[in-house]
């Protein structure tokens, strides 16, 4: 649609601007403030320069948390994206069963995150959970509160359970937009199932898949509640992801300076990714429009 230039449109945006400034800019300024200052209590602060940033960059704790975070995001992307596409390809295209699947698949997406944690915490327990009990009966040593591997498997399966449907729904939306003529042409050419997927469905899904990958990457990168409820970051520190570590540092130990420096670097990484996200999406919008 052709848009007209009208600077008075600013007045329509003003409420949003004020609200978001209050709920985002002021707090962010507080963080910036803390990251450059030190205190000995009594609300007396003095300039600390880049000290906190240097300390955090040399801190093994942060690098370890970052490593775990990247591993977590990498693993869940490697499972959820192919699985989501696979599920989308098998979904009924229309009619009652299509709606039926859509509704049931959306259910995990709408469950409060701490309840997702609670569900898996219960489900995985060897004494009262179906999954833990069954695994224990078969003779697999599974105890997510003691065993680091079991804890990791639990939070990964939980995330797959929670979010694969989102990838599937996005991929399904992409698939539905492919005109029937494409499939008829492929049939005339006697294209194999794989070739139909590779040369028709995959390219047509690329746009929504980019959105799915970036959304999943970003949301998994700031995940807090679900692993916190299930494992609390344990056993030891083995499932302490970035957000869990940051909350521990800021609200648990009240190490304001390091936590603020940590926050800013964390936020910068996300900003960088958001920028990629935005560029990709606007390019896609342009191509479609």
């Amino acid at each position: 649609m052709e848009k007209t230039v009208n600077h008075r449109a600013w007045f329509l945006v003003l409420p949003v601007l004020l609200l978001v400034a209050f709920s985002a800019v002021i707090p962010l300024m507080t963080v910036v403030n803390y990251s450059f200052q030190d205190t000995f209590g009594n609300n007396e602060f003095f300039w600390a320069g880049l000290e906190w940033f240097q300390q955090m960059l040399n801190s093994e704790r942060m690098w370890n948390a970052l490593g775990r975070q990247l591993m977590f995001s990498g693993i869940i992307l490697a499972i959820e994206i192919p699985l989501g596409i696979f599920v989308a390809l098998n979904m009924p295209k229309s009619g009652f069963w299509s709606s039926f699947c859509l509704v049931l698949m959306s259910l995990p997406l709408l469950i409060p995150w701490n309840v997702v944690g609670t569900i898996w915490q219960i489900f995985g327990r060897i004494d009262i959970g179906l999954l833990g009990y069954t695994l224990d009966m078969i003779g697999i040593d599974y105890n997510y509160t003691q065993n680091a591997l079991a804890a990791w498997v639990t939070i990964i399966v939980m995330d797959v359970w929670h979010w694969t449907s989102l990838v599937a729904l996005l991929a399904f939306a992409g698939l539905k937009s492919i005109p029937d003529a494409f499939y008829q042409a492929a049939k005339i050419d006697q294209a194999s199932r794989w070739k139909v997927f590779r040369y028709i469905e995959l390219p047509k899904m690329m746009g929504v898949l980019m959105i799915a990958i970036l959304l999943r990457f970003m949301d998994s990168f700031m995940i807090y509640t679900e692993p916190f409820v299930v494992t609390g970051g344990g056993p030891g520190n083995t499932t302490t992801l970035l957000s869990i570590d940051l909350v521990k540092m800021a609200l648990g130990q009240f190490d304001l300076g390091p936590a603020a420096a940590f926050s800013l670097m964390y936020f910068l990484v996300i900003l960088l990714i958001s920028w990629v996200f935005y560029t990709v999406m606007t390019n896609l919008d342009k191509r479609e429009g």
């Binding site: 978001v20 002021i26 990168f221 807090y224 936020f267 935005y278």
Partner: peptide, 21 residues
């Protein structure tokens, strides 16, 4: 774009400043 970055901000970053604000 700036609006979008707020959707992408980790709540953990904002927890402490919100508490103080």
């Amino acid at each position: 774009f700036w609006l979008l970055t707020n959707r992408m901000a980790p709540p953990a970053v904002f927890a402490l400043p919100f508490f103080q604000l």
